[in-house]
Design a protein around this nucleic acid. Structure first.
Lengths: 338, 338
DNA sequence: ACATAGATTGCACACGCGTTCAATCGGAGG
DNA sequence: CCTCCGATTGAACGCGTGTGCAATCTATGT
């Protein structure tokens, strides 16, 4: 039923090995014969079985891609970019979408059973044990948007602290002094860094935070927390939010209270998701360099994959076997909300 | 380096066949021995190689999942739901994200080379030839959100015409008479059905459309087209949009012109994406039953996959080998924009 | 025409696992 | 204690492909 290399070999009057070589770039085969084999294969509708190929060769072309809930705009944007880069590298993404509560370890080990060439993890937290298993399975791991505290895993991550420095600079330069903060999910890597960056930026200026509240990176939580802040006895004159979604919620809250943005209250976000540019929001925020992030993540991964064949000797002939952490600088995007 | 079934067999003092059986549900093996083998496997960190398993068995557990650009909220929602259902069925989604201009055929054939058990296509258009190839490769195809005109491919699709009937009924019941339409990408299946449904609904009431314009399902296009409609000499009192994103743009346009929604102008969408419920919009729309859609798609696919082993005889012992098209009814979601 | 190096080709094995089939084991019945 | 049947087991084959190695072919140089 399914057409195999043997069928093509017979039809083309060559050995099966030649069929394999015809489809292998740079294999020793006469140009004329390759053309012939490919023509016959085309006529028979043959394509090499990637599963069988993955059994012998050490590459399956599969890459595990772990992202958070894509119904959140930032995650969707990230997924879109990463998936495009993966495809562009002639690989296929095996998608694993994790919800906040999900256990990542089991699922990722499932993916390892598919002999993925590597894994890009942009959500959930991997235990050091799992990271070790990935390495042992020959599947390099690259974290996106978080850096493992152990420091033994490659990662690409936005410079969150710089982002908040940019925002604080922008706000203070415009005379804002009573700053409030709506953080994201507490234990999150990005939230910790952003909050820390905010406090540092204020510290540097001898300022103190007026108030801080915690949301969960959702629009609704931004709305709720902003309502609380804006109805408190001591109102802030600017609210910095842990991400864009919460900032959008905060803008809605301000408007619901009849406050003008940025007249009465300045509001900023983080990420610069597409919706931040939408008409009714015009959010001032910092751009998370997602495209550059995805590109860097794939570069790191490819580097490790091609280096995999080499021995783990102490002098890997120039291969950077040391863990690499790429930090990309965000950029202020000035719109109407601050 | 990688631990195989042979390693486990040796360590457990059994033959390799027993290791395989220990991991195969319902295989003939003494319960006590299975426990022992599994324990040893666990200690060695062994997991069956799914790639090798896919070579002999006829199931790889892989399902090709084709969706459109997930930076669009509806597509993201759909992807999230489909991917969850696929994982729940203990399969893995091989993600293919297509941009509007992309050619689907080549990419899908790439996926076929991975011996996917099936494919769910929710974006792009597959040629009849490709559909045939899928069937020939033993990979059942299920379309989501579109129905092949040839009528020989399973599909799950929202009842678009009913959706517009509901919206028209809602608007006319509230006294709106001058209805305008902002359609989505013209050649799109959903757009054709929705527009047709609108015209039919009006026809049934002896009404005519005041004006019609075409966007591309994006927020920006909704904004632009609504601006045109609302500044025309003969203003509509209601604008129906081909999807929610354009409706959000249309609301922004109305506000930019100082019009109140729904006071001066009613605006409706289609899909009920999460953003439709956001504070500043409160969009009246119809709910596209995405969860039910995903569930039905997987049910259809699983049904075909399990039927694959059977011969294509004329009496497939009750297997519904005829193509199935599931139509799911949308539901009016009444908020503040109409 | 002949020798020879280099370009091609075919054979056979390996990849890791599921599964058939014959062989073996265990225990119940006599 | 022997026989017989069913529950287990192990050996071997096949899945579709990549690739090392030795054999063959081609063309070049003399």
């Amino acid at each position: 039923m399914r057409v195999t290399a043997d069928d093509v070999a017979e039809a083309a009057g060559v050995s099966r090995a030649m069929v394999s070589r015809a489809f292998t770039e740079g294999a020793p085969i006469a140009a004329r014969k390759r053309a012939h084999v490919l023509a016959v294969a085309e006529k028979l509708g043959y394509r090499p079985n990637r599963i069988a190929r993955g059994l012998t060769g050490s590459q399956t072309g599969l890459i595990a891609l772990v992202v958070g809930s894509v119904s959140r705009p930032y995650e969707a944007w990230l997924l879109e970019t990463l998936s495009r880069e993966i495809r562009q590298a002639r690989n296929w993404p095996l998608l694993l979408q994790v919800q906040p509560g999900d256990e990542l370890d089991n699922a990722l080990e499932d993916a390892l059973a598919y002999q993925v060439d590597g894994a890009i993890v942009a959500a959930g937290s991997v235990s050091p044990a799992l990271a070790e298993r990935c390495r042992a399975s020959g599947a390099p791991l690259v974290m996106v948007g978080r850096v493992m505290p152990e420091g033994d895993t490659d990662a690409v991550c936005c410079d969150n602290r710089l982002g908040l420095e940019l925002l604080v600079e922008h706000l203070t330069a415009r005379g804002h002094t009573r700053l409030a903060w709506i953080g994201g999910t507490p234990e999150t890597f990005s939230n910790i860094e952003r909050q820390d960056g905010l406090l540092q930026a204020l510290d540097r200026r001898g300022m103190k935070l007026l108030a801080a509240r915690q949301g969960d990176y959702s629009v609704d939580s931004g709305l709720a927390q902003a309502l609380t802040l804006l109805t408190a006895p001591e109102k802030p004159d600017a609210i910095l939010c842990g991400n864009d979604a919460m900032a959008l919620g905060a803008i809605a809250a301000a408007r619901r209270l009849g406050l003008s943005v940025p007249g009465d209250i300045a509001i900023t976000g983080f990420d610069d998701i597409p919706a931040a540019a939408w008409e009714p929001y015009q959010l001032t925020t910092v751009r998370n360099p997602v495209v550059e992030t995805a590109r860097a993540a794939l570069r790191l991964l490819k580097q490790r994959i091609s280096g995999t064949g080499q021995l783990d000797s102490e002098a890997p002939t120039g291969m950077p076997h040391q863990t690499q952490v790429v930090r990309l600088a965000p950029e202020l995007v000035q719109r109407q909300s601050a």
